[in-house]
Structure formats: structure tokens, C-alpha cells
Amino acid sequence: MDEEYDVIVLGTGLTECILSGIMSVNGKKVLHMDRNPYYGGESSSITPLEELYKRFQLLEGPPESMGRGRDWNVDLIPKFLMANGQLVKMLLYTEVTRYLDFKVVEGSFVYKGGKIYKVPSTETEALASNLMGMFEKRRFRKFLVFVANFDENDPKTFEGVDPQTTSMRDVYRKFDLGQDVIDFTGHALALYRTDDYLDQPCLETVNRIKLYSESLARYGKSPYLYPLYGLGELPQGFARLSAIYGGTYMLNKPVDDIIMENGKVVGVKSEGEVARCKQLICDPSYIPDRVRKAGQVIRIICILSHPIKNTNDANSCQIIIPQNQVNRKSDIYVCMISYAHNVAAQGKYIAIASTTVETTDPEKEVEPALELLEPIDQKFVAISDLYEPIDDGCESQVFCSCSYDATTHFETTCNDIKDIYKRMAGTAFDFENMKRKQNDVFGEAEQ
């Protein structure tokens, strides 16, 4: 370990593993360490099931009705991949897709007046949907046509809207959309967690709705994908990429100290040895004095023996409960997957309800979601602090990732990755940087 590296990475969460992969592909010498004996950090999948019970201090362990412990891979952080989103792009560019198998999530649902409705995925579904009345549908269709044709580089498509100054509230007004449709559009399509976006320039919202539609167009059922064997497969896929390009991995490796000289990182000390480096990437748990708390998320993992009611017996789905429907500031989400994804025993389902904490009784906040899941065989409640770095790391060369937020997709995580890359490399992130180099010394032969 007593060696000189360009970059040392602490923690094998998804953000850290993707950055480690990119740095290795770009010719950097990388050492990647984790104090845990497993990959994934906060974003790991726990197996066998006995391990999950232990982690949540349920000492009696799983009953026999849960089947074989080894058949379970339970995500600690519930997220899906947008089919046309940035993480899929990263997987394709790096060819990490060859280590993973994905399934399309069967449906996306939205909560309205105590019931759940399928988010329409085709024009026919939209016309048949009970989510809105006849005239509302016509106006909504006009709005969707506007979004589909919108091109930020072609003012002819703006229809009198200025993407940089017109607020989204004004765009909704222009198409005369009612409150329910606005809730549905902002939260189930643009996937905002709160209503803060309404008074911001509309460009980002329009682009988010386009991303949803384009992702949906790829597979038809929903815009989301999920990897077989759980999300823990993602960091491992990128760790393989890093290793192929010469990255060194050490799990179960305690970090005793991060060594600084004149305010700059110069190395990491572990078990009496020092590895030197020019730059350091880590998750917040490794540098508690360089991060601040930015809120909390509650996630309740529920094991069920039945599909969720009114989802047409889907073996995977997402449910969004827009905040307006339950008098909150932030949406509540449910991600459900099952034995069909090799993450649970035969006939079992895993539904994870999550939201940003707003009160001193977080469990009560998630109740509307839990009511949709009854009866629940077993619950595991996790309340996590969200951390963000206190500075950009440019001076110390210590670059810290943000905690995983309450969103049900990876777009915010990818933004964090691109942002850290830019601060480390001094140049904007470009997907081309992730391409495997042809015929290089570490390149794998085609399968």
C-alpha cells in the first residue's frame, strides 16, 4: 500500500465507483478503499435476508415463511433508472452494461384523492384515464405537443414562451391547466419533490418532461429500469471497470487518518501504512468535519406477500404521492420490486416508501404510502441524515459526494458526479471521457 497514487477513493457507493471508473479509464492511477467488507456503502443491496434483520437490530431473524435468505437482495436506497437518463448513458458509454441485466418497471402510478391511478404512457391511455376530465385532456394534450416540439435552440418552437424568464406557473396558465393536472405534471412527469420549481424559469421543467417522455418511448410500460439482483450491482459494475483499467481495490480496510500538508491532501493512513495521493474522493462518512447536515430522509422497507392493490398485479412499480394531495411540502414515493428481479424469495415483494422528513414524527409522514401497502409482513425503518460538503474541495483537493436524496431516480446523483468531475479535472464533464479506450493495455477482449 505504500505507494504513490493520482487519486484515492474512500467508500464504494455508486458515486465513488463511477468516479473511480472514469478516473481509471482516463489513465489515472487509482486506489479504492472501503472500511466495509462489502461494496456499495449507503447504496448497497443487503443479502442474505438475515443480514438485513441484523442491521435493523431485529434479533429474532426472519421467519421460515420468508423463504431462503440467499434469495434476497434488499436495497437500502430505493431508486430506478430513467431509461433515457444520465446513468444509463454512463453505463452505455463505459460498457458496464455487459455486467448487468435490466428489466423495465411495469408501471408508474400517481395518488389522487386517496386512490392510485396509472400515469398514462400512451395517448390512448391518456384519453381513457380517469385522472382528468374530457376538456382537461384536450388542454393537457396541447401542452404535451408543445413540450414535444420544444427545442431550446429554435425560438420558432417557443410559442411566445421565453425559456429563460417565463416561469412554469405562467406556462401552466397559458395552457389553462387545472391544479390536479399541474400536480401530476410537476411531480409524476417532471419528478420534482416540491413546488419550488413553479416560480423558476420553465426551461428545466420542460426538459425534465421531455426526458420522461423519451424514456417512456424506449420501452413503453414506464420510463424506469431496474437491474436484476438489486442496485448493489451498479457500484460493483463500475468497480470492475476501474479494476480492468488498473485500479487497486481494498475492502474491509480501516481508514485511520487523512493526511494533510499546508491545507492540501497528501495521503491516507491505514493500519500503520500511508498511501500518498494528489486528490481524494470520499463519501460524507469519511470526513464528518468537512460536511454539513442538509436534512433527513425516511425510508421504510416493507416486505409483502402480495402485489400492491390497484396496480394490475404489477411485479414492479412506482407510486408518487404528490405533496398537495397530503398537505406536505415534499412528495412521498413508493418503489416496489419483487422475486421477478431476483431480489426476493418466490411470491414475495419489496416495497420501499420514502420521503424528505418535515416533522418530528417521520413515520407518521409516510402513513399515506403504508396504507396502500397493507397487509405488511415486516417493516424496517431507516431515518438517514443527508450531508453535503461545506466547500468545493478545490483548495484541499478533498472531494466529497452528497448523500443520496429522496428522489426515486439517479439524475441528482449523476449531477453530483459531473460536478465533482468538473472540480477535479478543471474541465466540464463530457460523456466521451467515459469511453473505454480501444486496444489499450487494460481493455477487455470482446465477449
Rank of each mutant, 00 (worst) to 15 (best):
D162V: 07
I320T: 12
S403H: 12
K142E: 07
M82S: 15
D151A: 06
F109C: 05
I332V: 12
V266T: 15
V357Q: 15
D313N: 11
T124D: 08
H341P: 06
G263C: 07
S242M: 07
N153T: 00
I259T: 06
D75G: 08
I350A: 02
E204G: 09
P362Q: 02
T427A: 11
K364P: 15
E363L: 15
E358K: 05
V334I: 11
S215D: 04
M168D: 06
R169P: 03
S403F: 07
I352E: 12
G272N: 09
Q397K: 00
K278N: 10
N130D: 08
K54Q: 03
T427R: 06
T47S: 13
N73F: 10
I258N: 07
F175L: 05
L191R: 00
D289E: 06
M260W: 05
F410V: 08
Y349L: 13
A314D: 04
D331E: 01
R70Q: 10
M33T: 05
I298T: 06
S242L: 04
T122Y: 01
K418V: 12
A217V: 08
D257C: 15
M134K: 00
V145Y: 05
M424I: 09
F56P: 14
I18F: 07
A126C: 13
M23L: 12
A128S: 09
F184P: 14
G246D: 15
G178Y: 04
D392H: 14
Y53D: 01
K269F: 01
S24Y: 00
A406D: 03
L372P: 04
G21L: 11
K278E: 08
I209T: 07
D170V: 03
A217D: 00
D154E: 03
E152L: 14
S330Y: 05
D183H: 11
N433Y: 05
V297S: 15
L59Q: 08
D199C: 15
M90A: 14
I182V: 10
R436Q: 14
Y421K: 13
F143V: 03
Y172W: 14
V265A: 10
L373S: 02
Q346M: 07
M66G: 02
L241M: 00
G27W: 02
A190T: 07
A406R: 15
G178C: 09
V274M: 12
D289Y: 05
F429A: 00
K422A: 14
Y39R: 08
Y421H: 10
Q447G: 13
I300D: 06
N36H: 13
N342S: 10
K422L: 01
D75A: 05
D361A: 11
L91E: 03
E159S: 09
Y5I: 12
D162Y: 03
E4G: 08
A148T: 09
S403A: 12
A243D: 00
G295S: 12
R193A: 01
G178A: 07
